[in-house]
């Protein structure tokens, strides 16, 4: 057997830590198009779990379904002992899951500070909110400098920092990060991912990270899933995925002689069987 993942060995690969989020057999539609076709995955406490995949693999739809912006057709999203599939977005945020969307999506005419306050919309503890604002500023000092500036005038990287900071203001247990590297320079990507790593370690925020930039994501993650055409086709420790020949060929652009280009042998494999 080569680098193909042995699915049965998965629970042994990520031991002891409690499962925070468990997605089971999820199916979601974009109109008539089935964007997620029976997807199952687990996120364990304190980890960074990444979901890799090409354009249109269904990664963003998966995140939108978890955060309640889209409703699934079938399947369960177990979180905190209950099924939150189909719950309204504000309920999901109150339960401690916050979604940092693709493409930043800041409130352009509000100031940096007001954007952060809006991240804490579901909270009513004014003191805690103020403390967390200082916490966000300690991770992103540039935001403190620009606190009275309209968010729409920030650079792309600063807007990404603001989007992450705004998400943190909800005091999430689980943060869904959708393509934080989108449109940023390699240097900025490195910086952002270092901060994501620190937030995970120092603030104890569990992260689910969707990325097209497989290398950066796998370097920072503990565990990784590969998604194709709405299904999970591969799952393993991030380190092992980074070594995997398939990943190297299809996502990292490393060519080897044995692999046959264009033949994805594991393409249709489902992990939940």
């Amino acid at each position: 057997m080569n680098a193909l993942t042995d699915i049965a060995a998965r629970p042994a690969a990520a031991p002891e830590k409690a499962v925070v989020l468990s997605v089971r057999n999820l199916e979601s539609y974009y109109g008539p198009i089935m964007a997620i076709r029976g997807c199952s995955l687990e996120v364990r406490e304190g980890q960074i779990v990444t979901v890799l995949g090409a354009n249109g693999a269904g990664k963003t739809t998966l995140m939108k379904t978890i955060s309640g912006v889209m409703d699934p057709e079938k399947g369960q999203i177990m979180y905190g002992g209950e099924n939150i599939a189909g719950a309204a977005p504000d309920k999901v945020v109150r339960k401690g899951i916050v979604h940092v969307p693709e493409g930043r999506e800041v409130f352009p005419l509000l100031t940096v500070e007001e954007n952060l306050r809006m991240g804490a919309f579901v909270r009513n503890d004014a003191d805690g909110v103020r403390k967390d604002e200082e916490m966000v500023f300690s991770y992103f000092p540039i935001l403190a400098e620009r606190r009275r500036q309209a968010a729409g005038t920030l650079s792309g990287g600063q807007q990404q920092m603001l989007a992450i900071g705004r998400g943190l203001m909800a005091r999430p247990k689980l943060m869904l990060l959708d393509e934080p590297s989108l449109g940023l320079s390699p240097l900025l990507v490195k910086e952002i991912f270092q901060i994501i790593r620190r937030l995970n370690r120092e603030q104890g925020v569990t992260m689910m990270l969707v990325e097209q930039n497989a290398k950066v994501a796998l370097e920072v993650a503990d565990y990784g899933y590969v998604m194709e055409l709405g299904r999970i086709v591969m799952a393993d420790d991030a380190k092992r995925l980074l070594q995997s020949k398939d990943i190297q060929e299809f996502y990292l652009g490393v060519q080897s002689e044995e692999s046959q280009r264009g033949q994805k042998r594991w393409k249709q494999k489902k992990t939940w069987r």
């Binding site: 977005p89 109150r94 916050v98 979604h99 940092v100 969307p101 409130f107 352009p108 509000l110 909800a170």
Partner: peptide, 13 residues
Amino acid sequence: AASQNQLAAYYMG
């Protein structure tokens, strides 16, 4: 906020 970016407002609860 909701009028400037409805989707982001949803995400923030």
